[in-house]
Design a protein around this nucleic acid. Structure first.
Lengths: 249, 249
DNA sequence: TGTTTAATATCGTTA
DNA sequence: TAACGATGTTAAACA
């Protein structure tokens, strides 16, 4: 197969030059390492990036069927009328073997992409919004400390209410589960041990699961509705205001 | 830009025909939905599959920088000298907008892939290995029940030892963490409540983290070393033996 | 280097 | 549909 022999040369050249390889064709895939998998012959897309990460995509589904993280050692050779690609890692030991039996398309590109990726509306942004605007929790709420370490993990926010009672705040960016309520309860236990009196506990999340809500009620844990999106809007508004005040100062 | 106008037509045709689109070029990307993200201009690979899942890959890294799961509604149009792709979902509401400013390559393919994907050596296989060969846990160990539901979740394996003491077994396919030890301890609490006496607790995993090991020691929790790979070997050997015995029967 | 935690996690199963 | 755990989770932050 002259076509696959040519492909082998181009793949080797691309690997050496740190190019991205896009190979469309008929292939079999086996993986052995943390798990083991077999995938029989079919038409797929193989992507090898400049950092030697490897992805195999089927014609459907968002996730790759097989992959190898960046830095794998890649070898390529011909075996009869097949093009073999062996992608190996040592820690943990794992191997991905791709057997290409028919080539549909092969492209290689040297790509330049230095842009910064910015993401917002994460759990971190919810915490920042509360720190910059504590009345999200309630009127008169003040921050004492963020990420205060306790025996198991860290308390998202420790604060005091208008009557100077300690408040333990736990933040979740998704619907809170029973387990999240238990975690907050354990944090409150730690604070009670340390300060000698029971703090208030407030779970901040866009919503609570039914079991989480009933457990929270039983344990006397309060909750506040806040979505990551709303937190992001509060931050943006506030920072806009800060810039305005700075400009006038 | 005649090139991008031509690309628009080919993308539309591919979307209608359920083809896979591979577009390499310079683009900006914004996402708004469960989170929000911005990515400035750079050279990337856009993949749209037949099921309308969308992936954007940078030249490095295993994971896509942005994506949209299968079934998103995709619209494409020209805006000045830019090709715009808008990929929308309704549940949850989220939108991915791609602005292509320069085309490097565009390919579309109708791919056929009907192969079955088989994966082995998962946590499930570790459980099966213990069920088929209980002496992996210890001499005289017998299975009572698998996946026994308790208040929070399910016990992987409940069994009895050679002295008829109850044993709660928790299986982890990776190095076990402190949290895994706590989970097992809570399961043991539930069994103690139900049966009126403290069961033995055994954590099965390829290894334990240092903090997990010390917590296990403090709580009187035992452990057994078992990797998914070894479990898979045991299963294969055993099933081979079963077939041999069945052939002789 | 190892551990811990967040993620647009995704994906499957079960009640 | 909601809840819950497994995943070859991946990836980043932290000690």
């Amino acid at each position: 197969m002259t076509e696959l022999a040519d492909a082998l040369e181009r793949v080797r050249e691309a690997l050496g030059a740190g190019k991205v390889v896009l190979l469309v064709g008929e292939m079999e895939v086996t993986y052995e390492g943390r798990s083991m998998s077999w995938l029989g012959r079919g038409e797929r897309i193989l992507m090898i990036k400049g950092d030697r990460s490897v992805l195999i995509h089927r014609p459907k589904g968002c996730e790759p069927v097989n992959w190898q993280p960046p830095g794998s050692h890649i070898e390529a050779w011909l075996e009869g009328d097949r093009l073999i690609l062996s992608c190996n890692r040592t820690a943990p030991p794992e191997r991905l073997k791709i057997t290409v039996s028919r080539l549909v398309q092969l492209a290689t590109h040297k790509l330049a992409d230095e842009a910064e990726f910015e993401m917002h509306a994460r759990e971190e942004d919810m915490k920042l919004a509360i720190i910059e605007e504590p009345c999200i929790i309630e009127e008169g709420f003040r921050i004492v400390e963020s990420e205060r370490p306790v025996r198991e993990g860290a308390i998202d926010i420790l604060g005091v209410d208008s009557q100077d009672r300690l408040v333990v705040v736990e933040i979740k960016r998704e619907r809170a589960s029973k387990e999240d309520v238990k975690q907050l309860s354990r944090y409150a236990d730690q604070i009670e041990l340390e300060f000698g009196r029971r703090p208030r506990s407030i779970l901040v999340a866009p919503s609570l699961s039914t079991s989480a809500a009933s457990l929270a009620a039983r344990l006397g844990i309060e909750s506040r509705r806040l979505s990551p999106r709303r937190a992001q809007e509060i931050l943006r508004k506030r920072r806009g205001l800060d810039r305005f005040l700075a400009g006038n100062g």
